[in-house]
Design a protein around this nucleic acid. Structure first.
Lengths: 346, 346
DNA sequence: CTGAAAGCGCTTACAG
DNA sequence: CTGAAAGCGCTTACAG
């Protein structure tokens, strides 16, 4: 069971190594008959070219680096699944870089750069320092971001449509008759949360409901803090009858805050979240929330990456002038209505 | 900013490429002074050897494959974090193989084998077919399993102590005065669930409580099914006063089943889960559950892998005769007591 | 359209 | 203890 090499295939097919190589790399300048023949023996012997050897010879590798944040995210699983489903049909492999420092991808990028292994980098990011990524990009390594970034960065990215998602969630509450709707807001520095907050405000304005700044609570997406802040607000005479939380975990905290006051959800207080993490279908009451299309986001990002590193590879063949280099795609979200929202109390 | 190579370092240091290589690979047969000097220039020029070139020359690579199941698991994140924290201090990189077929790792293994890229494989598995993994192992590729396997497999593995974890959970219920305790069991074919079930039964027996088979519900770990089965059981006159669920998601289902009957948790029914996934701290009532040390499990597995692929690398230097090749480590769990368990009703 | 040859950046006997 | 040389398995001009 010796490892079979290009030389073996060449001998077996009665051609030179060069020809085999050209076949492998889809060169057009090889006779169709020869190509078929070579392909046949390749298949027969189950030959797979050595990735390391070809990387060395080509000067570029067939690895895509994927940088993921550390512990935090439940969504990484779904995102990754999407990425895997497209990459598994290509000769590329994913090298996983897990950042043990969630606020700075610097060390991880250094490592990547040093190894020179990655043909491109997929980055799942939140509020990490962007500088290292921009450096990467400037050094000619394609970078595709998964998740929202500030618009001042010109890196290709795929994200959920946070703005429209938030609008939809708030409109749902408005439709149910709610007028005093609180926002359990995430970090003001996170672009995704800025978009969600804008969506919240615009939906209100559009419905003719004036914006009351005291109804926006800066929870930083930390459940304990969210619970505490909302508990304060719920004690007030003109308490809100609904809350739009910037993510599911703080929505859970909102339910706890309601319980702290003996308020029932949704009879006394409606709650809508954002993300639709797996547990949201199971909490009591089941959470109405904005579902992000994580799997699709991952798949899309992977396709953009492939297009960026091997333009010939078809698929996303460059609609805009820079290939997909500066694309910024926003995928639609879906409002999942469950049991945590209901008509505004009389 | 040309890529700097071993030849550059050799020239800069005034030695041969061979010597530089020996230094890089920690060969003992190089003069300490020379070594210091070479190391200095390596550092000064920030030289990192090409992973592809050395893989090619050595005939083995510095990649560790990690196979993860598809969508399912929230714990993969924590596991991965543990793995990353140890691998990041070595020259190894992780190649991520995501199985889009959760029941058969065959395709993924084929791919891995074909590329010949991985020096070893870390596998997060549940009830996948073991055959491909055993083949791998037989071909001399070190395999370390994360998670429980049938004891009939002789692959090194790290798992949580499911048996003791279950015992602890059930003893907690017994201490609270419960005597009729249901088990919301997982697939009988999954070794981890077999262990949990044994723990449940042994804890009962040890307390002198006879085992009532009708109290064990085969939920298959599917929440809807768990809810339905338990709802049936709770309608009976001698209903259980507590339930031990084999994982958190079915514990949530148990709470729903209780609500279906208007039973309060924990006043009328105590519920304990297994896993301690992130949301369990936030559900209402917060779930008492057995916490698995995912991060530690990942780290441990990574260390075992390193020991297997580079025995010289110290760390876990082989306590048993086969190195760590046949080790089977079981890490302790922790019972997290929260609000879903309380004294048995009078 | 095809082949011989040099080269990618390392490692590893083999001499010395 | 150190260096010259061959080789790992591919790719890529360059001839033909």
């Amino acid at each position: 069971m010796e490892k079979i090499t290009i030389r073996d295939i060449a001998r077996l097919a009665g051609v030179s190594k060069s020809t085999v190589s050209l076949v492998i790399n889809n060169s057009p300048r090889v006779d169709p008959a020869t190509r078929r023949h070579v392909l046949a023996v390749i298949r027969r012997y189950n030959y797979v070219p050595s990735a390391t050897a070809s990387a060395l010879a080509k000067g570029r590798s067939s690895f895509i680096g994927m940088i993921v944040p550390g512990l935090t995210w439940q969504m990484v699983a779904a995102l990754n699944y999407g990425v895997a489903s497209v990459i598994e049909r290509t000769p590329y492999e994913i090298i996983l870089y897990t950042s043990t420092n969630d606020h700075d991808y610097g060390p991880v990028i250094d490592r990547m750069l040093a190894s020179g292994l990655s043909a491109g980098v997929l980055v799942i990011s939140q509020d990490q320092a962007m500088k290292p990524l921009l450096d990467l990009h400037e050094q000619g390594v394609p970078v595709v971001l998964i998740n929202t970034l500030g618009s001042h960065f010109d890196l290709p990215s795929v994200e959920a449509d946070n703005y429209e998602g938030a609008c939809g969630a708030v409109r749902h509450l408005l439709d149910l008759g709610h007028r005093r709707i609180a926002s359990l807001a995430g970090p003001t520095t996170w672009p995704c949360c800025q978009d969600r907050q804008r969506g919240y405000e615009d939906a209100l304005t559009e419905a003719g409901v004036p914006i009351d700044a005291s109804l926006t609570l800066q929870s930083g997406l930390e459940p304990p803090r969210a619970r505490e802040l909302l508990r304060g607000l719920l004690g007030l005479p003109d308490r809100p009858t609904a809350v739009f939380a910037h993510n599911d975990n703080t929505a859970y905290a909102a339910m706890e805050a309601a319980a702290d006051h003996g308020l029932r959800v949704p009879a006394d207080l409606s709650v809508v979240g954002f993300d639709d993490i797996p547990s949201s279908a199971h909490v009591k009451p089941a959470l109405t929330t904005v579902s992000q299309p994580f799997e699709a986001m991952g798949a899309r990002a992977a396709r953009m990456m492939l297009a960026a590193i091997s333009p010939e590879s078809g698929e996303g063949s460059a609609p805009d002038e820079h290939g997909l280099a500066s694309a910024r795609v926003r995928l639609p979200t879906t409002l999942i209505v469950r049991d945590s929202t209901g008509p505004a109390p009389a």
